[in-house]
Write a protein that binds this DNA or RNA. Structure first.
Lengths: 338, 338
DNA sequence: GTTTAAAAGGATGTCGAAGTCCTTTTATGG
DNA sequence: CCATAAAAGGACTTCGACATCCTTTTAAAC
């Protein structure tokens, strides 16, 4: 069993024509006789001829492939992004080459290089958490490959971007808790060196301020994973009792869900005694008990927008378009936890 | 900003050498003087020269890319599979081209064709639920592209396979329910034209038989998605009442979880009144209320094994190796729903 | 009967890399 | 001093598709 792809030359040899003629017959070139065209087309169909994409790309200097660098496919947000990108890309005749950095800087560098080596027409990137140096991306950029950053952007590199308004999202979430009657709201926060960490905290503080509630530094706890919640369980319980916590805004859904589970194991009723809200709206929110209210982060739209911005550049080569930043506003998705 | 990739010819022109010399200098060919080599290498490094992967693939008749066709990336099982595949592939110098069929036959056909067009060296496939015709895959096969099926295999095409022992998994799950005291066990099944659908049903039946319980065709309901559960809710409730159902084995976790939610909304206590077990063990099982007992399906291992089988063929071209089927045995993961 | 052009198709070069073959220069042996 | 070979590097070809340029045949025009 060996590779046996049919080429133009093969067809030409068998039909006793020149490769040029076969090529033109297949693309309805006026110089070719109708009879000949029919003959060639019928035969090509019969032997299942398909032009070699590599040869085409090499010749055309265009691969019709775009590269995607993404931290982790397992996260629902990112897999939704992929769908958004693909749906648009496919429609326009582009393929997507997906690379998973696994939140690993080294891998991200290798992936970027692989995409450049394959001469992708454009790159969509969401950088890994561990990436501090951006030379690999700048390199792609310098090679003239259009790039669009989404979600985890690199501020140092000026290009198109698609981001979620984390500040406003957090504000919406916190305001919602306040409107549902919460007075003492705990915020489980992400590390402050991450943009989402600080922005979401700021939104939380802004909402408190807007409603005339004094912020309390003790009510902001660094805790952004499921495991973290359980290891802090004792501490959190003490805090809840001392501060009469009646609402919790967690920086992401899985932390929010773990928190609900921890509280329930201590006999606390949700939402009656404490209301909980998350951020992100993956499918977990629906599965949790009670279903989790959260702020919906639009993965599919993020992908679509990023691809749209990229296509704009690819379809208008040579035309200078000012870089734009698309900000998506997350929306409240109320369920039974608030 | 235009594409400005450096080529061998560019380097040759600037250094006033021939392209051949530059090519050989870069690969340490003995015919080239050390001085020249150093000159070329230094310069190549400086201008960030990277060979064009397209040109290389065309010349070598090998792309070092393998194609992956997968139903839906959002599913935890499949994204784990991807990780398993990538970890092995990267190490061996292969890139992975991921295509998502979205459980859509048409898309799967297009994806397969795209992979063939790109002349991937091999293909890993898990077929979509809606695929009934396998000509697109047979086509790839006839083109001499090695294939490995995983999880959702096609029995008609003889090639390497990696599957989970669905029969045994279902048997383990059902036996577990019986051992926990269930007498009337409902099975929410996948379509029977899917191998996982029929095998899991058979495992369920075998477990009943082993424990001397008579099977009842009415207790096998085709229902394999979250949405399906809610649309069948009335019907299921009637069935549960009439048949005194005390245990449910769902063909996958999300169906199991949705079922628990549906039952709970009708006031039924889990596991006290009805015990529920799923299949797959994604991260959702831990989040569900109560945490879902399930049969652990090994996504990462599945991907690794599939890639391993494919590599075996790619690294031994021309050598005939008998097709093998690797069967992974799932294990019981008991939580609080049983 | 010759000019002219349209119709139909072939030959050649290009994209980028690299293997095969060929040429030039220099050194060594007899 | 010539023969021979090693050292160093260039020319040519190939992978597959296709665009550009070139050739042949035939029919129309004068």
């Amino acid at each position: 069993m060996k590779s046996n792809h049919v080429t133009l030359k093969d067809i030409a040899r068998i039909l006793e024509l020149s490769p040029s003629t076969v090529s033109r017959a297949l693309k309805d070139h006026p110089d070719i006789n109708e009879e000949t065209k029919k003959l060639v087309k019928t035969f090509a169909e019969k032997v299942n001829y398909r032009p070699n994409a590599l040869a085409l790309s090499l010749r055309r200097q265009k691969t019709n492939t775009i590269g995607l660098i993404i931290p982790e496919i397992v996260h629902h947000f990112f897999s939704s992004v992929i769908s958004g990108i693909e749906d648009l890309a496919y429609g326009e005749g582009y393929n997507v080459m997906i690379c998973q950095s696994n939140e690993n800087y080294q891998r991200e560098v290798i992936d970027t290089q692989a995409l450049i080596d394959h001469r992708v027409d454009g790159i969509l990137v969401s950088v890994s958490k561990t990436t501090r140096d951006y030379n690999h991306l700048r390199n792609a950029y310098d090679n003239g490959i259009p790039m669009v950053f989404f979600d985890r952007i690199v501020e140092e590199i000026k290009t198109d971007r698609v981001i979620t308004d984390d500040f406003q999202g957090a504000q919406i979430a916190t305001s919602h808790l306040i409107e549902r009657g919460c007075k003492n709201i705990l915020h489980l926060a992400a590390p402050q060196h991450l943009v989402i960490g600080s922005r979401r905290k700021e939104g939380y503080l802004k909402a408190l301020e807007d409603h005339g509630i004094k912020a309390d530094e003790d009510l902001i706890v660094k805790c952004d994973t499921r495991e973290y919640v359980f290891s802090l369980q004792q501490h959190l319980m003490k805090l809840i009792e001392q501060k009469h916590i009646d609402g919790i805004f967690a920086v992401n859904d899985s932390t929010a869900i773990a928190t609900m589970q921890a509280l329930q194991s201590e006999g606390i009723k949700i939402p009656d005694q404490i209301k909980v809200i998350g951020f992100g709206d993956g499918p977990n929110a629906d599965i949790a008990y009670p279903p989790l209210s959260t702020v919906e982060q639009k993965g599919y739209e993020t992908g679509r927008e990023a691809m749209r911005l990229l296509l704009q550049r690819l379809e208008n080569p040579g035309i200078e378009i000012n870089f734009s930043t698309k900000v998506l506003t997350p929306t409240l998705k109320q369920r039974q936890s608030t």
